[in-house]
Design a protein around this nucleic acid. Structure first.
Lengths: 355, 355
DNA sequence: ATCCTCCGTGTAATCGATTCCACGAGGAGG
DNA sequence: CCTCCTCGTGGAATCGATTACACGGAGGAT
């Protein structure tokens, strides 16, 4: 592959001049510039990003470590992150932690070794020493979706509190009183926060959240199935199951269907995270929708601010309730207006939104 | 950040010795080795992958350019690719082309600039000059899922021909005679191949595929919706719609539901590509399932073979039909045995498989 | 005419690793 | 006791870029 030296030789100038042309430095004669450009074209020269990074100490690359690529929520997040990064002139390397702290560490280490300019993380656990060290050592870093308390790192996330309250209101209005939750790992902020928001909202309606109605999941489908089976085995099963993410909702649906029960007649189901498929499940699933794309873009902007020396800002965006049919037909909301919030691959034709 | 010089100083040896210890070169005294190791630990030193790559001319990184990250099929592919690559000591940088040739080129260019060791591509179009040049210039490359005819690059893909024949047999057995297809872009091999396989299978049953029953899609949900609406507007609409990928099937489902029609009573639906959600749609969708994980792993193995000087091999794996309820209740298959092929996030509890 | 400023350009140092080559010490063999 | 290996080690070149610095020439001011 042609190097800058070859270009210099071909154009009859020094490598310095070639470099100046390539980085459009002002003091280059137009004669030299055209000769260099011609040589570049003739040789099909492309600058070696590795060499450039070594010298300039910047890679124009962002690392993104997410908890689970197979989760459509994170896929969409990754997509919007890449999009915004590209717009700002950065590339993104994605690391999939698969909800495993060891894998998360592997990716963080690899990304740091490659000297990425900044790191976007949705931490799987309470924070490994490696990540804390990196943050303390000054690696530009932003947490997205989940975060680690007590670390000086900006956080970009959605606040589900009011949407969860809307959900509980919706459920209460439908006559449901025994509500259960499939929680995420307590080590993740989203895991514990969603339970807390749910419990708080229940309290407002004089309802409590007994231990038997709090199942411990891990954000994977299988755990949703297992926990739901536990609920169904109770002497008095809950009337509603609220899954703290979309994959556990999928597992719950599996478990319910395996018993030959129907949603929502036998048991209602709701989920945190909305995805295109929820429109087409049987029945369509009521969910708390996060502004995923906006989250990804805001996270990149915060990180790039930090990298380029501007003060980064934490961002919290509101989630909103999307009512469908999985909790029962609501007489009070059937007249609500249809909002057409077109996600890239989603149809929202059968959605009804609550403010 | 500490460099190899700092380590050398701390350990009281030369940088050459440090390098030798790090790459466990044989001729290093055990005394020097322990001193270096101690220094490395004390400084928290990590080798700079950028500098190493510049010198050794290898990045131990693979590039993966896929057509659409939001498509669960490609997400799963990406995941298995990363997994196998990691096992072989490589990292993966994913580029999402979003079915856009310009974006595909952007990513190929960026990856080439970073001097990745090899490229895994699922081409969006017939092949840009850039990619053809790269292939000709000797960049190790492997096509996965889709490929470009006439280029000397190994291909790893699934063969859907026999599964499509099984599908047509299934549909014919159910009494369907007017079968339509939502095709993918003709520029992609998967786009044209699936139509051809379908047409061939139809011919075996004495059925033809009229132009009116061949809709042109682009592998995105919206096109599935549009094409399906066209089908439904025909004076004699088809009895079955076969979508050439899962997203277009989603769009088709949207369109059908928007008309107030029911699947499979009013119209049957089948899809190429199986995904976890197809079990839970209303009704569960009959699909041709690809061995996605195996495909990803085989592609990485082929690419790494090529990179490390072994002759790479093209691989073709068979797809298989998974019968569910979206084409009607089949009296002949209701007694078929249940196969439990557990995908990572999928339940196959309600699947019935045909050989 | 002389001096000073720019302007365009080239030389060379530098980034952080790997690796070829030379060198000195020590042991084995004659 | 001399020679010849072998082994461990360090010096220095190298990868491909960027960039500080020096330098020569042109042009303006005095």
């Amino acid at each position: 592959m042609a190097s800058i030296k070859d270009v210099a030789a071909e154009a009859g100038v020094s490598v310095a001049t070639v470099s100046r042309v390539l980085n459009d430095h002002p003091s280059v004669s137009s004669d030299a510039r055209t000769r260099v450009l011609r040589a570049v074209a003739a040789l099909g020269y492309r600058p070696n990003a590795v060499a450039r990074s070594l010298r300039t100490d910047q890679t124009r690359t962002l690392g993104l470590v997410i908890s689970d690529v197979l989760n459509p929520y994170f896929t969409e997040l990754a997509r919007s992150v890449e999009e915004e990064a590209r717009a700002l002139g950065y590339s993104v390397i994605i690391g999939n932690a698969d909800e495993r702290p060891d894998l998360q560490d592997h990716h963080v280490r690899t990304l740091l070794d490659r000297r990425i300019d900044g790191l976007l993380v949705s931490p799987t656990d309470g924070g490994s020493p490696l990540m804390l060290d990196a943050a303390r050592a000054g690696t530009p870093m932003v947490f997205v979706d989940r975060w680690i308390p007590g670390v000086e790192v900006p956080v970009v996330r959605a606040d589900g509190q009011s949407a969860v309250r809307d959900l509980v209101a919706h459920l209460y209005g439908l006559g449901h009183r025994r509500l259960a939750i499939i929680a995420g790992p307590a080590a993740t902020t989203t895991g514990s926060e969603r339970v807390r928001a749910f419990r708080t909202a229940l309290a407002e309606y004089g309802l409590s959240l007994p231990d038997a109605y709090t199942g411990q999941g891990d954000f994977q489908a299988e755990s949703g199935r297992r926990v739901t089976e536990g609920f169904l085995d109770l002497p008095e099963p809950p009337e509603v199951v609220f899954a703290a993410d979309n994959l556990m909702a999928l597992g719950a649906l599996d478990a319910i269907r395996a018993r030959g029960l129907r949603v929502p007649d036998d048991i209602a189901l709701a989920a945190f995270d909305d995805i295109p498929w929820f429109v087409h499940t049987d029945p369509p699933i009521t969910a708390v929708a996060q502004p995923t794309g906006e989250l990804g873009r805001a996270a990149v902007r915060a990180l790039v601010d930090r990298i380029e020396g501007r003060p980064p800002q934490s961002v919290t965006l509101p989630a909103r309730l999307v009512v469908r049919r999985s909790c029962g037909e609501s007489p009070t909301t059937t007249v609500a207006t249809t909002t057409a919030t077109a996600a890239s691959t989603a149809s929202t034709a059968t959605n009804r939104s609550m403010p």
